[in-house]
Design a protein around this nucleic acid. Structure first.
Lengths: 152, 152
DNA sequence: TGATAATCGTTGCACTTGCCACTATCGACT
DNA sequence: AGTCGATAGTGGCAAGTGCAACGATTATCA
């Protein structure tokens, strides 16, 4: 009787994994893996953040953030400069190379969204985002690990 | 203007990763990692499946499935016996050890669901599942990789 | 000021996951 | 029966992710 209700995490898992595959596939010709686009997009939204701020905003471990940004820097999509006010931290900036592919990266996400939104009414789409946001917020609020990166 | 709409994948990513963390944390005393509970649960629902059927049902790569089941077998939660009718494939069975923790495993998932459902009305919860299911189905239908495991 | 705690970032480790190549077996077809 | 393609499962590789330990810098405070 309660069986079907247990499958939310299965759908979430599927959506996450398939999304990673789709994005990775569409961006691999730019040498951007599924672990990096999320940082690019965050920086498209606001440039010059520190790694800690990125970790807090995306709720991603700072070690993971460091690795992703290191790779993005090696590929020339990003450059990091030490802050004068605090030499422990960087400011992460997008390069021209990153700005050049901005629309392409965004359109990949938009395409993926279109795929999973297929057959949903406008109303349902709005609701989907709203509900996901609520659930995501719940998840983030619960998680103790989040205390470490709580700089929003 | 279209910025906020792009964040679905971010919520999905967050929900997936935090769910993995939560489940991993709650089950680590049983030596069950976040990569294994999903298989246990599938087997709780239907025992004796082959690895290929599990892969197809969960839409998970068969290599990943093989590794997860190998580990579950080493830990004594599962045993695999070759089918007579087809010696290439196994039947995967739960052991008593796995059945013994069935309710615990399920309650962890139920707890996680309760956490992310917090503040949602019954109606919204139903809708959440329905919409996730639609989006998941869309994702699964699109993905070409899925052709390889399409045994549902 | 000097000692101690907190913070930003890096690195190593373990685990999950997907992809690909490979083996063994099965099925279909001549 | 013999051959060849398809299928189930394995193992190696690479990438993403979280965690914990660490170094460097900054902040706190006695």
């Amino acid at each position: 009787m309660n069986d079907p209700k247990y499958t939310i995490s299965r759908w979430v898992s599927l959506l996450y994994r398939y999304g990673q595959m789709y994005i990775g596939d569409r961006l691999k010709h730019l040498d951007i893996g599924p672990g990096q686009h999320i940082f690019l997009n965050a920086l498209y939204k606001e440039d010059g953040l520190s790694q800690e701020e990125l970790s807090g905003y995306l709720k991603i471990d700072k070690g993971t953030t460091a690795k992703a940004l290191k790779k993005l820097e090696e590929q020339g999509y990003v450059l990091r400069q030490v802050r004068d006010e605090d030499k422990r931290s960087y400011r992460v900036f997008l390069t021209d190379k990153a700005l050049m592919i901005r629309e392409e990266v965004r359109s990949v996400l938009a395409d993926w969204r279109a795929i999973i939104y297929e057959g949903l009414t406008e109303e349902e789409q709005r609701m989907a985002l709203g509900i996901l946001e609520k659930m995501g917020t719940n998840a983030a609020r619960w998680n103790p690990a989040q205390d470490k990166n709580n700089n929003e």
